[in-house]
């Protein structure tokens, strides 16, 4: 029985997870994603001798392709390639959540700046324009009028890379100074936080503060439904939600969430909870 633990950088989260795995007695081998070389057409690799992979890579691209490659080579991961692929792409997430009937912010997808400007007009200002791939609130822009939309979208289109030409536009929600996050592990809602900020981007990487939140049944049910849409009952994700006049709406789902600021305020040892579920899964597989 062997767990592979893949990282790009060992953040506080990964250190806590490794210590929790040690307490669970899980035999764990660490791999640095920057040093991986996977033989897709056959060949030995220590990763292939592992029974389960826990990929905590910081890089969406590396996480997606390593997970997909290992799946193809017969080694499953805590979050499947489908989960990583869906959660790592905001547009794909919106599509999957919509198909499952999960309440969301009104969202448009367009493929030229001109069509995206029309989408902003139809949604009504202000709108929020986000890159389909990205984290920590980077390049997320609130746009208040047509002139600003045209300028931003033209600039985005010129950034290079095909993803810069996929325009993801959402209605702006005047949230009450906070958004909510629920940590879900294998079908259990284990902890909930509110992220509070004076800025409209409530991301802890941008200075938002965290408070523990009582897990209401409404919050838990919606987060579990969103997680189930992305990965059934076998995934570890953090579901971000916002309180709106229409009720709770799901914003996005994260497949490798940070939680160092969340365990203290919630009183839940999130690393221990996640490690316990991984240990359980490993026992079933091995």
């Amino acid at each position: 029985m062997q767990l592979a633990f893949i990282t790009s950088r060992l953040r506080v989260e990964e250190k806590q997870l490794l210590l929790a795995l040690e307490r669970e007695g899980v035999p764990t081998t660490r791999f640095d994603d920057g040093e991986l070389s996977l033989a897709l057409t056959g060949g030995a690799h220590p990763l292939l001798d592992c029974d389960l992979v826990w990929n905590r890579s910081l890089s969406f691209g590396r996480a997606l392709y390593a997970t997909a490659a290992l799946e193809a080579l017969g080694v499953p991961s805590v979050n499947s390639a489908r989960v990583v692929e869906t959660a790592g792409d905001k547009a794909r997430t919106s599509m999957v959540l919509a198909a499952a009937g999960i309440p969301q912010i009104a969202t448009r997808l367009a493929f030229t700046p001109a069509a995206a400007v029309e989408a902003t007009e139809e949604l009504g200002y202000p709108v929020v324009i986000k890159p389909i791939v990205g984290s920590w609130g980077r390049q997320v822009a609130r746009v208040d009028n047509r002139n600003a939309a045209e300028a931003l979208l033209e600039t985005r289109a010129a950034l290079g890379g095909w993803q810069s030409g996929i325009f993801y536009v959402q209605e702006y929600i005047a949230k009450p100074g906070r958004d909510l996050r629920v940590f879900v592990s294998d079908g259990r809602a284990i902890a909930a936080i509110a992220r509070r900020s004076d800025h409209w981007i409530t991301n802890t990487a941008r200075g938002a503060t965290v408070e523990g939140l009582r897990m209401s049944s409404e919050l838990a049910e919606l987060a579990l439904a969103a997680a189930a849409a992305i990965g059934g009952n076998t995934c570890q994700v953090a579901v971000d939600l916002v309180e709106s006049p229409r009720g709770l709406l799901v914003l996005e789902v994260n497949h490798s969430a940070e939680f160092k600021n969340s365990s203290g305020p919630t009183g839940v040892d999130i690393a221990a909870e996640l490690a316990r579920d991984v240990a359980r899964r490993l026992e079933v597989i091995a």
């Binding site: 790009s8 950088r9 920057g34 910081l58 890089s59 969406f60 691209g61 791939v133 990205g134 984290s135 920590w136 980077r138 990487a205 953090a238 994260n254 490798s256 969430a257 940070e258």
Partner: peptide, 11 residues
């Protein structure tokens, strides 16, 4: 020095 954060790095 730790590796620099890339564009698609995050949580």
């Amino acid at each position: 020095l730790a590796p620099e954060v890339q564009e698609e790095w995050g949580e």
